[in-house]
Design a protein around this nucleic acid. Structure first.
Lengths: 197, 197
DNA sequence: TATTACATACCGACCAGTCGGTATGTAATT
DNA sequence: AATTACATACCGACTGGTCGGTATGTAATA
């Protein structure tokens, strides 16, 4: 029998295994047995910690959203110009991606699920809204301080988020022309230069 | 019994039904019976025209890629500046999206499949490479004619494609701040202004 | 000794794919 | 213009493996 561990720890371990499997095979093709096998646990154990597959996936999304909260705090240095903060967030995100691509590669899976599940769609909507809002605030601030032109901040926030999402496409189809960091960096500068006064 | 129709017609009818179902439920959750039910056909008929589910999906991707070939010819007016052509393609794409969102909403499904199926990944890679190439050519041309600064054309091409992909996110999470057309238009102008001399 | 963390054996709904058969063409032969 | 021969389009009951979930047990821990 596997070493016993407190539920709080084991849950996280399961969630991480689930992430790996869900990314590799996709939600529907992922087997509960695969996940359990990944950590040498039993099905009974899995169902002891989670109610079922959907429940596990929702827990995973919650866990996933927590992992991204550091980004929200990426704007620690409130003193600096918005441009610097946004570039920092972008660089930080790219680094995060390099270290753990799976956190990003689940996203299409979440999208797909959101498309047919209202609750999950609302969860995702909520997250994206808060990310967008953070960028909007930064841009608004930049406009007020005469750093940016008087642009539509919601639009620019979306452009930024879309660019960051481009990383996922990048990871899937691996274009060889340039590196991920270059892409994020240059793309972000393109946007920021575009709205500079 | 359903009216008999030549294979060429019936295949397309099935592919269109498959598109609807795959978008609504996702590949794995889509049932062959769902597809067949959509057009009032029998399972036997479906398996007469296609070898299986995966085969059907591959055929769908091929059909899907054909639908996008007009985009490649969106740059008919070779005389005009690249900026105009690119804006035109973007507008055209947005219009296409409005008219038939399903053609775009399968894309996450294709991505997800590409992630676990080499053949499909290569098909998708090939398409994206050709789309990227078209934009690259346009940008290179713009640089040569002194329309754009001396930028990395591969990078900008990716920025453009990423922005267009943002439409999918848009359709899924429907932000209320502005319309799809506005997003595409403004986003594209942002990029093009950014690389203008 | 009650509870928590796990294991094992098992269930049964579900669904891709099969297959024997029918119906409707179409083109050569008489 | 029948008749024969073959091809294409379609039907739907059936099956067999798969996999999410459950029932029941046991060992560790508090």
């Amino acid at each position: 029998m596997t070493e016993r561990r407190p539920s709080s720890e084991r849950r996280i371990e399961i969630l991480e295994a689930a992430l790996t499997i869900f990314v590799k095979k996709g939600y529907s093709e992922a087997r509960m047995d695969d996940i359990v096998h990944e950590i040498g646990l039993s099905k009974g154990a899995l169902y002891h910690h989670f109610q079922g597959k959907r429940d596990l996936f929702i827990a995973l999304i919650e866990h996933w959203m927590d992992q991204f909260s550091p980004i929200e705090r990426g704007g620690l240095m409130r003193a600096k110009p918005s441009r610097e903060i946004i570039l920092h967030i972008a660089k930080f995100t790219a680094k995060l991606f390099k270290r753990n691509p799976n956190w990003f590669l689940v996203e299409p899976e979440i999208w797909a699920f959101a498309n047919r599940d209202k609750e999950i769609r609302e969860m995702a909507s909520h997250l994206y809204a808060s990310v967008l809002n953070e960028f909007e605030v930064l841009i608004k601030r930049g406009i007020e301080y005469g750093e940016f032109r008087d642009v539509n901040e919601a639009m620019i926030a979306m452009s930024i988020m879309t660019s960051l999402h481009g990383m996922i496409w990048f990871a899937l189809f691996k274009p060889s022309d340039f590196s991920l960091e270059e892409y994020v960096q240059l793309n972000m500068e393109l946007i920021l230069d575009g709205i500079a006064v």
